[in-house]
Design a protein around this nucleic acid. Structure first.
Lengths: 292, 292
DNA sequence: CGTCCTATTGACGTCGATCAACTCCAGTGG
DNA sequence: CCACTGGAGTTGATCGACGTCAATAGGACG
């Protein structure tokens, strides 16, 4: 991996479509990336002492369809996406696949492997990618030398945590259209942050993969997109997408179960009062073989 | 329980609701807990230097229904459950509530607040609780003095991560009965680890709360439990539960979508090959205003 | 004893899954 | 160049699981 040689010129950092093939032209990937750039990518402020500026990480390039790591592989690196798009897929015992995330620039892959010592999901490129290879132990070992490096790691963990939190909300509370709308709005926002168009972009995944991610079937994804297009919220052509009415799209995720917009006191007993909303455990007779 | 007479001799800085009855009997809650006990509780091995054995944390006691912390409160402590049961609830903009977890002994509350600096969910006691108050900054500050303290923190983050990961799988791939079965099996397992009965226990939450957690309605929870009871897998009386056939229960979560038990090569191209499963981005003509 | 809350159960409606037909496009090979 | 193939995507028809609404019962508590 990390096919060095690579003459290292790359100026911009945006995803660019690796011509692949031949040899030279695709050389816009530096072989190594410094710690400060890494921190930048992760949106974490980090003061790097003068004697630590030589900390660098290698970069791996992936072709579309290529596998970065597999569930079960030993946890050794964190992978930070520098450019390109991937999917992470978990496969349970029965062989059922579920897409867990579509990592893109600034996202980290592999965090979930920390405790068990091996990754929990496959990571597969959906496009040409540049991935920064971050040896976890090495970085964690810098904690004593670079103040804030722990904070960086906590932040990476937390970021993943929040993402899954959002998925739980999406899967637990939203209907199919709202899920799709939510996904598109997220994507639009992220593209915006990367300096790309918020309103016109391309999906990198199939309907099937998107459905797996959103907990619905591919047909349902297709129907949701068609419905949005039919009501003028967007134009859809295969994976090409143009958002026409972001506000209306945003309204799609408030609709279901919008019943109780009631008050929530939020005052009074500074985490101390609150009359026993919860009933004490019911007595429940000893359960002596009921039910026929 | 804990029918107060209220002699109230609050020692720690935490708000604590009257020590149980008179004075002595319920005093199995020390006011402070040491670092080694904390590490134990979190199932993390931790070597504590001799000069660090005096690191201690205060304990807060909660009555059923009492609030430990609220979404939006400043992130300052991690809360580790020493005994008792709680629920964490997130409330979105529209006032829709979603139960995120039912923390019990050994679980940590508040991790999700790290990045934003404020908690993301309310935490409410479902029973009398002892909660260890862990000032995050203080503990993180020990990293230089106690090797392994970072590992402990990573582990806490990772634990939460894995839990949410599992929720994503549950919400994205399982039907209602499988969700309930999965929950009961988890609960049984956890009770077993705590030295309680794996087959006979009490649910601390309402059907409503459980449904919110599992992404289904309370009636559906009730029906699932009734169905399990009807087929002899368990006996249910209100919140009292007796599992009769754990294996059959386990089979309930393999049923849906058990179609492709096919092979997965898992060999060959050590994360490098894999013929372009993924098609290059489709050309998609420039999308010049399609759709009426 | 009456009220409130939790839980159960039934009837019915709806959203999304399932099955299937069709189109579109890329790639392949004649 | 065109015919064939296969995967991605769209759309319709149908079915089933789960949500919704409602009635009822029972325990907790004042």
């Amino acid at each position: 991996m990390v096919d060095a040689k690579v003459v290292c010129m790359e100026t911009t950092n945006e995803a660019q479509r690796a011509p692949a093939s031949t040899n030279a032209p695709a050389a816009h990937a530096r072989a190594m990336v410094g710690l400060s750039e890494l921190a930048n990518l992760l949106c974490v402020a980090l003061d790097i002492p003068a004697d630590m500026t030589d900390v660098e990480f290698s970069v791996r390039r992936l072709q579309p369809g290529e596998t970065l790591c597999r569930a079960g592989d030993e946890f050794e690196f964190l992978y930070v996406v520098r450019s390109g798009y991937l999917k992470t897929v978990s496969v349970d015992g029965a062989g059922n696949e579920q897409v867990l995330a579509f990592p893109m620039r600034g996202d980290t892959i592999g965090v979930d492997g920390f405790d068990r010592g091996h990754y929990a999901a496959d990571a597969i490129a959906l496009d040409s990618c540049h991935i920064i290879i971050v040896p976890f132990r090495r970085v964690a070992g810098l904690a004593g030398h670079i103040p804030g490096i722990e904070r960086l790691i906590y932040s990476v963990f937390n970021h993943e945590l929040v993402h899954r939190q959002n998925m739980v909300r999406l899967l637990g509370m939203l209907n199919a259209q709202a899920r799709v709308a939510n996904f598109l709005l997220d994507l639009s926002e992220r593209f915006g942050q990367l300096g790309c168009s918020r309103s016109s972009f391309m999906l990198r995944m199939t309907r099937q993969e998107l459905g797996s991610y959103l907990g619905i079937k591919l047909e349902t994804v297709s129907r949701a997109l068609s419905a949005f297009a039919a009501s003028g919220l967007m134009d859809v052509s295969r994976r090409e997408l143009v958002l026409n009415d972001v506000e209306a799209l945003r309204r799609k995720l408030e609709s279901p179960a919008a019943k109780d917009c009631e008050r929530r006191p939020r005052s009074a007993g500074r985490a101390t009062s609150c009359p026993p909303t919860v009933r004490l455990a019911p007595k429940a007779r000893p359960l002596s073989r009921m039910a026929a």
